[in-house]
């Protein structure tokens, strides 16, 4: 099996994403967890790019890594994280807590391996999906999903507006 440049980048980026995700889960300090998760998202963006979806890759960076994670970071910064908080967090990460996640994770990994063994590796950048194609799909065949997502966002917006109003106006 010969590897093209795209394949090498694909495997390297996937390995990077998996590794940083594993680190993100196991950190006791939430800020380190978040930062590793950001790195994992960047790795995912590279994976999307090598699979021929540059638009999805760009959105992954702008929306997930660049906006949503910044909000998470913003909240974590407001919590006062000192040594006692981190020690308490480490106390929760006992060895017994890992049993169920590891079992279910192993089941998923088994299914994934079973599926992968039947396939022929990554598709590579044989077919590049242009931003226009994504837009067309979103507003023709996948319109229902877009509408559902917008309704969800509207609900969130109304909720945020209600919570954000001064207490006087709320009564």
């Amino acid at each position: 099996m010969s590897l093209s440049g795209y394949d090498i980048v694909f495997y390297a980026a996937s390995a990077f994403a998996l590794l940083t995700t594993a680190i993100a889960i196991t950190r006791a300090n939430p800020l380190y967890g978040l930062l590793n998760f950001v790195l994992s998202l960047l790795g995912m963006a590279v994976v999307f790019y090598t699979l021929g979806a540059p638009f999805a890759a760009a959105l992954e960076v702008i929306v997930y890594a660049g906006a949503i994670m910044v909000l998470f970071l913003f909240v974590v910064m407001m919590l006062r994280l000192d040594r006692t908080a981190i020690a308490r967090e480490s106390g929760w990460l006992t060895s017994s807590i890992w049993i169920i996640p590891i079992l279910s994770g192993a089941a998923l990994a088994g299914e994934l391996l079973y599926g992968l063994l039947g396939s022929t590796g990554p598709a590579g950048a044989h077919h590049i999906v242009s931003p226009q194609a994504v837009g067309l799909k979103l507003f023709t065949t996948d319109l229902a999903a877009v509408e559902l997502a917008s309704m969800l966002l509207l609900a969130g917006l109304i909720g945020a507006y209600h919570l954000g109003r001064p207490a006087r106006a709320r009564d």
Binding site: L31, L35, V38, P54, F55, A57, A58, L59, V61, I62, A65, G66, A67, V70, L73, F74, M77, S130, P131
Partner: peptide, 24 residues
């Protein structure tokens, strides 16, 4: 690059991490 403009937006949105992390 066919996503040139998005790449620019992505990089500017990542650069804020430097400032936030410096502060934290």
């Amino acid at each position: 690059l066919n996503i040139g403009l998005l790449f620019f937006l992505g990089m500017t949105s990542l650069s804020v991490y430097g400032v936030i992390l410096a502060g934290w």
